[in-house]
Each structure stands twice: as structure tokens, then as C-alpha cells.
Nucleic acid binder design. Structure first.
Lengths: 226, 226
DNA sequence: GTATTCTATCTGGTATACAAGATTCGCCGA
DNA sequence: TCGGCGAATCTTGTATACCAGATAGAATAC
């Protein structure tokens, strides 16, 4: 394994979370990750520090780093935060270029393909990252960053609480959203987004407990290796 | 100087930025900070990693860490991001308790006092943190965190571009905002917020160049020491 | 006097060393 | 068989060592 920078580690872990390769509550040992990425604990630690700042992992003193397991309360707050940000994003957007609409439509098609091909990791990744693309398309990279943070947490929440928001429905919502944007019907877009998140929020009531995987299993995941 | 954890360092630096004790472009050397806080470079580095993840500082390889100097484009994006978040926040809020209204009013009074007493650092700090309190009052700590990040950057932007949004006007806007919230006039609140940010955005055109202070001067600032 | 090159020094980048708390597991006793 | 106790081990916490790139300043050439 050739060495990787701490940035690479950080991004790889976010990607792994979005692809559901890593589950909430999973332990991420510094030593293990160092071996996987071929670097010393120092770089792993840097990546963890940034990830913890983004609310993806948290450290338990002298026990290890763990992927966060949001409580129901935190889950609701995250969904509400996303609702605020996304609705604000839609309401304050001025004009969206035809080029961007096309990109978003292409992204939705990719999502559909991942669903059809039953590519679970890619499916989860694309469905989550659609909203990041949306913010970027509306011309604000800062909001895109914020949304990446929030959607990553949402994926963890969805995994943890087994929200049954099935992929096809999410994809359909995205399609309708882009369609509304193409017609410049902002109000419709807001409604679709609002309903989408309300659905997610409702699905949260069904709790499901997960058994955390051990770090050893993680090492076995070939795809986790960059 | 007794040792401090990396968390303390991080918070202290954010506070220093909010209080305008630290200017954009200022160099923050690992060695210097380590001496100031009485710790090794390791802990300073951890704090810097998290601050960079929050977009407050950036590293120039083998040269040092610097407080970010947003370009005009980034400044506009930050203001737009804040507009989205704050408007979304106001629009999706359900009910705000009388208790919270009181807290916000008390905060506005504190702001006024800082203005009257000409306490510049405290003034800057309170005016910026009002929005963080607002998000917290509306019951979402995640949005509060996001807003802390954004307002910190806004302070840097205001310093850099010498936006003449004078303190008294900001405070008045805050007072009007809380008043609208008390009367449950959400639309008015949104309007006030929107106008406030538009004003900030307009003021951005007047560019002002700053000369960065050296780290030695920073060391001299007794108040920077925890 | 000015431009240039070379070197001493400073800075961050990364790995490693060592300390101390947490965990595990075996041993012992009841 | 079950529960408690202790040492061995594992994990993060923090400091330090060493490297390489960047910088500044002096010496040199013109």
C-alpha cells in the first residue's frame, strides 16, 4: 500500500460512509487505518480531527474513534437543518442555467442506472450526493460543502434507523425536483423538497439496532483500500 | 503558561477572530502558538486541522498557517450561504418560546451596551454571535454550529473589505428582528434578514487592503493568552 | 549600486518514542 | 460455576526527532 495524504484518508472515509461501506458505531482504530493507508498514525489522526470537526466521527478517550451514532434527537435536528438549508437554497436562488439543469438530469439518470443495476454502494452514494450537486449547480460551493456534511450524517441516520425511504422514491423525487427547476417553478420545488424531508423524518420512528462491525472486518474490505 | 488542550486552542482562535484580535492574512506559526499555549506543535496542529476544516485558516506548505483572506467571490458566496441558511431557518421554524424571545432580547441589550461602552472586541463578538444564538433559540444546535462557522468568516470578510455596516445599524436590525419574532411575523423577520444581508453584500464593493500583522505582535496580545 | 547565487536558518510534514488510561483474559477463591 | 482481582496488552495522548522545502541574508560578480 503506497502512502496517502491525510486529505485522501478523509475523503475516502466520507465516501465509504456515503457508500454504506462503514456503519454508524464502527470503530476506526488509528493503527488499523494507518496500516490500511500505509501511513503513520500522525496522518490518520489529522484526518480524524477534521472528520470529527465535521461531525462524522467522535473519539472516546483512549478507546478509539467511532463513526457517530446520532440519537433520535440529533437525527431530527440534522433533518431539520437540512430542510432549512435546502429550502433556503431553493428560495434564494436567482437563475439556474440550462447547462446546470442538464447536468442535474444526467445525475438523476446515473442514479436510476445504479438502482437498476442494483449497485447498492454507488446507489447510496449518488442519492446522497445529488443534493451536493444541486447546491454546486446553484452556484454556491460553501453550501455544497455544508450539504455534504449534512447528507453524510443523513446516510448514517438512515442506516442506523433503517429508514425505509426506498431508493426509487428518492430518485423519483429528485427527478421531479429537477423538472420543477427546469420549468422555473420554485414553489413546487420547495414543496417537493419539504415533502421529501418530512417523509424521511417520519420514517425515523421505526428504530432498528445495528451491531457494529469490528475493525478487522473493515480491513478485509478490499474496496475500502484506495 | 499552563498547557491547554487542542480544543481550547481552537475555540480561543475562533473567539480571537470574532473579536477582531486576529486579522485575515495573519500568520499563525505552529511554534509560536505552541509557546503561547504552552504545548507542543502536535496539539497546535490538531487545532489547525479542525480550523482548516471549518474554513477559518489554511496552510501554505512549509510556510505556515494563515487566517483565510476570502476573495470577493468567496465573500459573496459566504454571504449568500448565510442568506440561505438564515432564511431557511426562519421559514421552517415552528414556534419560538417566550423564554427564548426574552433571551434574545437580553442579548440585543448586551450588544447595545457593548456599543455604548465602545468595547470594540466584545461588540464584534456579540454582533456576530447573535445569529448563533438565534439558531440555538430556534432549537437547532447543528444550524447554530453552521452559523458560527459562517459568521466567523463574515467577520473576516467585514474586516478585509472594511464593510461599513456600522455596529449600531446591525444592532437595530437585530432588535427589529426579535421584535418581529415576538409578534410571530415571520415574513417581516425574513424581510429584515434579507435586507440586512443585502446591505452587507453591497458594502462589499469597497475594497480595502490590510497589512497582515506578524506573529510577534500576536504574542504581545495579553488577551490572546487564555 | 544592483542582481545573483549560495548558505544558514526557519517552517511545516511525517514518523516515532514514550506515557498513561482502558480492556482483556486468565487465575484464584468462594 | 460465578465473581473479583491483577498483570499483560492494546489504544489513544502528547512530545520529540528528523527531513525537506521555503526564506532570508550575506557574499560575490558585474
Amino acid at each position: 500500500m503506497q502512502p496517502a495524504s491525510s486529505n485522501v484518508i478523509e475523503n475516502r472515509i466520507i465516501q465509504a460512509v456515503l457508500s454504506e461501506e462503514i456503519s454508524p458505531g464502527e470503530r476506526l482504530g488509528e493503527k488499523d487505518l494507518g496500516e490500511i493507508f500505509g501511513v503513520s498514525r500522525t496522518l490518520v489522526r489529522e484526518a480524524m480531527m477534521r472528520l470529527s470537526s465535521r461531525g462524522i466521527v467522535a473519539v472516546s478517550p483512549r478507546r478509539g474513534w467511532f463513526v457517530i451514532e446520532p440519537t433520535v434527537e440529533e437525527a431530527r435536528e440534522t433533518i431539520e437543518a437540512r430542510r432549512s438549508v435546502e429550502i433556503g437554497l431553493l428560495m434564494t436562488q436567482k437563475n439556474i442555467s440550462a447547462e446546470m439543469i442538464k447536468q442535474l438530469e444526467a445525475h438523476v439518470l446515473e442514479q436510476q442506472r445504479a438502482i437498476d443495476e442494483n449497485d447498492l454502494g454507488r446507489r447510496s452514494y449518488l442519492l446522497g450526493h445529488f443534493h451536493v450537486h444541486l447546491a454546486a449547480a446553484l452556484g454556491n460551493s460553501i453550501l455544497a460543502n455544508i450539504l455534504e456534511e449534512l447528507t453524510t450524517r443523513i446516510v448514517l441516520i438512515a442506516t442506523l434507523y433503517q429508514s425505509k425511504a426506498d431508493a426509487q422514491q428518492s430518485c423519483d423525487n429528485h427527478r421531479r425536483l429537477v423538472s420543477a427547476l427546469r420549468k422555473n417553478k420554485v414553489k413546487d420545488a420547495v414543496k417537493i423538497m419539504d415533502a421529501h424531508l418530512t417523509h424521511l423524518d417520519k420514517a425515523l420512528s421505526i428504530r432498528k439496532k445495528m451491531k457494529p462491525r469490528s475493525a478487522d472486518q473493515l480491513r478485509g474490505k478490499a474496496s475500502f483500500v484506495p
